[in-house]
Design a protein around this nucleic acid. Structure first.
Lengths: 243, 243
DNA sequence: CCAAAAGTGTTTGCAATACACCCATGC
DNA sequence: GCATGGGTGTATTGCAAACACTTTTGG
């Protein structure tokens, strides 16, 4: 299949493990002929856009290639086109070593995706190790991937304050404390539990179930689910209202 | 100069004329051999990205080509990659008629720019008429340019609520009422003058001058200017403060 | 019975809203 | 002197923030 040579897609895959916000990264270790490590760092997952392929589809394809997951929340957040993106010495060494057929200048469309980290069980991809990293304990990153990741995080934070996308990072059924930990992890803040719950209580699309946690060694928490239908309805109502 | 064949940049040029928020559009009228009009609509201004050119630079180049202006506020807001972007019959007719060498599938990076409409005096560009249109009186648009424009406006509204970018649309010296009209035009709302001024008064980067309007047939308004220095400082202070 | 997290109300301060009249200028 | 927009203060309401103790379960 033909590719568009100067265009790629990079995916920032965010996952929440009920404690930290994590990013899924792929090991990039380069060995010389004697199997000594020349350098070792990590990359986001990305790929070319195919000829006649919408970059949105490419992003879905790339995410699915790596994780096997479908129907994942994805958001295009920025396009990176600096002419210096791939020109660092280390990056050129890597490209030459693998004989990758990459032009000097590739423009990359950035997407982030939100998944429940517990749903993903990947150990390696194309012989490269795959690992979660908490966003405040990142390893060294290849190319301009640190820039891409920081921008993704910035855009995620903005989006999170405007739309209830956080639930994409949780299991279908969740507790209110999990929601709070999630918001704290993404925004890097602490919230007061009572005030946070008061706010959630006003969001009618967070609907309580007749169900509680089991086998926890403390008072079991009520479970909730996120109703997209109720959310869309309440949003329309709001738009109808103000003029 | 070589181009990247599948990549282009489209610019949504917003201008404010102290009453409406406007977009600068370029006439696209197609004539047949007898000089009858086949169709007539408008386009945003866009162009290919050159080989080895950062799309950010391409956007600056395109804006400058059209308006002759430099140092204009520009913001990349979304990348459009649908495979159907250019496939409407009208658009294909246009492409064939002008013998434009455009592939079937072009991905376009969208930028919006903010300028004081009074600074721009363009009548035509490449033999095509150039006109301002108020955003709530748009003509029919070519390709997917309506989609692009709506997205630009949506992103502008979001940005405007977070950063004081509105001043880019005003002259260096402006009155508080002009600021209010601007915000009303962009956000499509009305504000109470007293409350609006109270809010502006808290923004120390809106600094009063010892100067008033002249030759207006009403009480002359005090003039203000936007200080980026003060804004950046106050922003840093705020970040230092919360943790 | 102890550890661990769930769950719950009230007070306080600040920010957003609503609202009406006088002022300075050009014609 | 009149039409036009400039400019100003106060009272009310709603929302965000601060804050401490009891409850339920498993081990």
């Amino acid at each position: 299949m033909d590719i568009i040579p100067n265009l790629s897609v990079d995916c920032v895959i965010f996952g929440f493990d009920s404690k930290n916000l994590n990013v899924l990264l792929v090991d990039r270790t380069l060995f010389d002929k004697n199997k000594n490590v020349v350098f070792s760092d990590f990359t986001l997952t990305g790929n070319h856009v195919l000829a006649g392929e919408d970059p949105d589809e490419a992003a879905v394809r790339i995410l699915n290639d790596l994780t096997g997951l479908h129907d994942i929340y994805m958001e295009q957040f920025h396009t990176f086109g600096s002419t210096e993106r791939l020109t660092r010495e280390k990056d050129q060494t890597w490209i030459n070593h693998l004989k990758l057929n990459i032009p000097q200048h590739v423009i990359s469309v950035g997407y982030y995706s939100l998944i429940d980290a517990n749903k993903v069980k990947i150990k390696s991809h194309n012989n490269r190790k795959v690992r979660w990293f908490p966003i405040n304990l990142l390893p060294e990153l290849a190319f301009d991937h640190e820039l891409i990741l920081r921008k993704a995080l910035e855009m995620l934070r903005i989006k999170l304050r405007q739309e209830p996308i956080g639930f994409e990072l949780l299991a279908d059924k969740f507790t209110l404390t999990q929601v709070q930990r999630l918001y704290e992890a993404i925004l890097g803040t602490k919230f007061d539990a009572r005030n946070f719950r008061k706010k959630l209580a006003q969001m009618h699309y967070v609907v309580p179930l007749d169900e509680k946690q089991t086998s926890v060694r403390h008072k079991p928490a009520k479970l909730y689910l996120f109703s997209r239908e109720v959310y869309e309805r309440s949003r329309r109502d709001r738009f109808d209202f103000d003029i």
